[in-house]
């Protein structure tokens, strides 16, 4: 009994240390520093309790606007990725031959090998006013801005959606498709009533990646977003430009709250139980 405990402790101590001390600890530091303030001249943090920063979040209309814009972008990216990922994952899992399937899995994950910056700058070139997209569409490139940001982020996070959805489809037995067809349902009905409910948890799992990664992004928007700023840019601005860590911490509470609400919403759908 004792030896078992010892083994278990030895096995779990490092992950627990990481989780509690480093991860939860850093979030705690964040929460605490949101209640501090800044010495305007030297830029040193003054460790005196104040609600000023949190108040500022509600008083200043800028933060509300940017927060809504950011959540809108995150939702748009999530929806676009889901719409693209579902047919691709269905094809990979149920239609493609084993060789083609392996090739597709490799193809989907290959972009993850390339540097984030390279991919973002590639989109900058693609979306340039005189770039390839403009040339192919006869001058209808969206240019740099919000649309370009959504396109680029959708591309960047697509593998994180496809892989869970692919795994989700893989877990749906082929016999369910056959049973549905035998009972007279068409392809569309089978997809809607049998397959989608079964893969929904996988889509939800993927959406957590796409949603949260988008909320935290500030580099892609800097490269293709024109003058658009998202929540993370404002946080970066407060942290690096203003060197105002307390305000940055207070602002970080917005995406933190958004993520927690999103996870709770996902849990209500029951999606998290089968992941």
């Amino acid at each position: 009994m004792n030896a078992r405990w010892l083994r278990l402790t030895a096995l779990l101590s490092i992950p627990m240390l990481w989780l509690v001390v480093l991860y939860l600890g850093s979030i705690a530091v964040l929460l605490v520093s949101a209640f501090w303030s800044l010495d305007g001249f030297t830029g040193r943090v003054v460790q005196v309790y104040t609600l000023g920063n949190l108040q500022q979040l509600f008083v200043d209309p800028l933060y509300g606007t940017v927060a809504l814009r950011t959540i809108g972008v995150a939702l748009a990216v999530t929806v676009i990725d889901a719409v693209i990922a579902i047919p691709i994952a269905l094809f990979m899992s149920k239609v493609a031959q084993p060789v083609a399937r392996t090739a597709l899995v490799v193809a989907v994950t290959t972009p993850l090998w390339a540097s984030y910056l390279v991919k973002a700058y590639a989109w900058r070139v693609l979306l340039a006013p005189n770039g390839p997209v403009a040339w192919m569409t006869g001058g209808h490139s969206p240019g740099y801005g919000l649309a370009a940001t959504i396109i680029t982020l959708s591309f960047l996070w697509l593998p994180y959606m496809i892989i869970p959805v692919f795994a989700g489809f893989d877990r749906v037995p082929d016999s369910l498709f056959e049973a549905s067809f035998d009972l007279g349902a068409g392809a569309w009905r089978t997809l809607r009533s049998v397959v989608l409910p079964l893969v929904f948890p996988a889509v939800a799992a993927g959406s957590i990646f796409t949603f949260s990664l988008t909320l935290g992004d500030y580099i892609a928007v800097g490269i293709v977003g024109g003058k658009t700023q998202l929540m993370a840019n404002v946080i970066y601005g407060q942290l690096v430009t203003a060197n105002d860590q307390p305000m940055a911490a207070a602002l970080s509470l917005i995406p933190l709250a958004a993520i927690i609400l999103y996870l709770l919403a996902m849990r209500r759908t029951g999606a998290l139980e089968n992941v």
Partner: peptide
Amino acid sequence: TYTQWVNAWQQ
């Protein structure tokens, strides 16, 4: 102050 400038710039 510079902090006010930073906020102005974000606005």
